[in-house]
Design a protein around this nucleic acid. Structure first.
Length: 494
RNA sequence: GGCCCGGUGGUCAAGCGGUUAAGACUCCGCCCUUUCACGGCGGCAACACGGGUUCGAGUCCCGUCCGGGUCACCA
């Protein structure tokens, strides 16, 4: 089994050097967790902050868990979030392919190289034999570990099924450095001889990751902190090959509460779910960025960041070591901030479908209704119920006419409405200025405060106590005819 | 259970040996006002606990407790 050393030399020659290179390496399981999205964001930010390269790699080594269409969700989400990748399965690049299942041969070759170097070995044990349950394991118990290469090779050649395991030193310690957690040292005897190549010939995540990260020239390995305890084994692998060790960046998880990670199973929202719930991509990214990272120095108090600003401000020193609980209320607050910061035109555009969901009447202006809504909604999805009254006057209780602060009672309302119907009816040009003029003039003439006439007019026009916008705006949008119809209706009922 | 990592208000968080312990969300008041919002102002609320080290500790060390991760031929 002569190793083709030339192959390895060629692979080495292809590795880009000199620039920061990061990779987002999801396994295609169907949707984008909030935690995944955040990892993708941080990975992208590290690359962009350094003027480096951001790579997308698909990790599909587990054949049993492939989900149809899952990679499309990944592409779509990254594109929507503007986390553009410079290299990947769809755009290619100097170290293609970027899908692990297409790199299968490579892993096998490197595993063999590692065996040659003495840091791995063939293991012929049945699954059950090596699947020790918790507690101490004794790696010396695995008879395959001490097989000579020649013996093992003979059994392989004879067609016996095998896996390839990493040979961890039985004594000593291994220290690795993480950009967030610092130096961490563990005793080698607590590490197991993990499987590198599975019985089906596929590499495990742990092996494929190291090989690909090296072969793709990744300088910063960003991943969840669940891999922290495997990191010493990765170090041993890099050292076994004689490769440079990348900078590890282990991110703590996003939690649903103090004891559980966010998970679809618990009904926690994925990125797609949040979009469906009416959240803006920019707001989600902004919130999620701050969930685990915070700005330092003179921008320590800044909370609103565009993607570009994040890329400029991002630094590893601001990363948090502890898990963070996802708070939908704070996300909602960010969403409201983004909604309000939009130009009225842009807001009207995103709000339109939600407005039209409830307000079908084309005479009712989307842009005018949107203007009322902009400061008053935190999520797009709450729009329809807020504006439904424009389309159809709800049934309402006459008690709504009672309002202490406005000094209004049903009796007062009756008086105000009949007067308002007359004066509003006399308006020729139906606009806000005229309506306001007429109504405040009425209040002045009747020696009451503005609120005393505005309250009943608004109630009669809208049929509900709380409305986006005041009496004047609502009447204006409704139009003269409909306004008068509603006011008369109110008067009749009183 | 072994190993690893954490622990500042309910939540996200600043803080790097000397601060009246920031800021944001939430909640509560007040102002603005044509309802509700927006905006403005104010308020409630925290260094897990016990020992050290030090003139001085949220900040350094040790222990306890609590939480998370991991211990797969899943990633």
């Amino acid at each position: 089994m002569a190793l083709d050393m030339k192959y390895f030399e060629e692979m080495e020659a292809k590795i880009p050097k000199g620039k920061v290179r990061t990779r987002f390496a999801p396994s295609p399981t169907g949707y984008m967790h909030v935690g995944n999205l955040r990892t993708a964001l941080y990975t992208w930010l590290i690359a962009r902050n350094a003027g480096g390269t951001f790579i997308l790699r698909i990790e599909d080594t587990d054949q049993g868990r492939l989900v149809e269409g899952a990679t499309d969700v990944i592409y779509k989400t990254l594109a929507e979030c503007k986390l553009d990748h410079d290299e990947g399965p769809d755009v290619g690049g100097p170290v293609a392919p970027y899908i692990q299942s297409e790199r299968r041969d490579t892993y096998g070759k490197y595993a063999r190289l590692l065996i040659e170097k003495g840091h791995a070995y063939y293991c012929f044990c049945e699954k059950a034999d090596s699947a020790e349950d918790s507690g101490d394991f004794d790696r010396a118990e695995d008879p395959c570990r001490s097989l000579s290469l020649a013996e093992a090779q003979a059994r392989v050649d004879a067609g016996e099924p095998y896996v390839i395991r990493q040979r961890i030193p039985e004594v000593g310690t291994t220290t690795f450095r993480d950009a967030i957690f610092g130096d961490i040292t563990v005793e080698n005897k607590t590490l197991d001889d993990q499987v590198l190549i599975k019985r089906d010939g596929m590499p495990t995540y742990n092996f494929a990751n190291v090989i690909d990260d090296h072969l793709m020239g990744i300088t910063h390995v960003v991943r969840g902190s669940e891999y922290l305890s495997s990191a010493p084994k990765y170090n041993l692998l890099y050292e076994g090959f004689g490769w440079d060790i990348p900078t590890y960046v282990h991110c703590s998880p996003v939690m649903r509460d103090a004891q559980n990670k966010m998970s679809k199973r618990h009904g926690d929202p994925s990125y797609e779910d949040l979009k469906d719930q009416g959240f803006l991509t920019e707001a989600i990214l902004n919130y999620v960025a701050l969930l685990g990272w915070s700005p330092r120095g003179d921008i320590a108090e800044q909370e609103v960041f565009s993607l570009d600003e994040l890329a400029r401000a991002f630094d590893l020193a601001g990363m948090s070591k502890s898990p963070a609980i996802f708070d939908i209320e704070k996300l909602t607050h960010f969403n409201a901030l983004y909604l309000r910061a939009m130009s009225p035109e842009d807001f009207a555009k995103v709000a339109e479908p939600y407005i039209r969901q409830a307000v079908k009447d084309e005479h009712l202006s989307v842009s005018e209704i949107a203007a009322l809504l902009q400061a008053r909604c935190e999520k797009l999805t709450e729009i329809p119920e807020k504006v439904a009254f424009f389309q159809e006057l709800p049934d309402y209780d006459m008690e709504l006419f009672t309002n202490k602060k406005s000094k209004c009672t049903p009796e007062v309302a009756k008086e105000m409405l009949s007067a308002a119907i007359v004066t509003l009816g006399a308006i020729h040009t139906w606009n806000e200025w005229n309506i306001k003029e007429v109504l405040t003039g009425l209040a002045e003439g009747m020696q009451v405060k503005n609120a005393t006439v505005m309250w009943p007019v608004r109630i009669a026009a809208a049929g509900q106590a709380v409305t986006p916008g005041g009496a004047v705006e609502i009447c204006q949008i409704l139009g003269k005819e409909e306004t008068l119809r509603r006011l008369k209706l109110g008067l009749d009922k009183l």
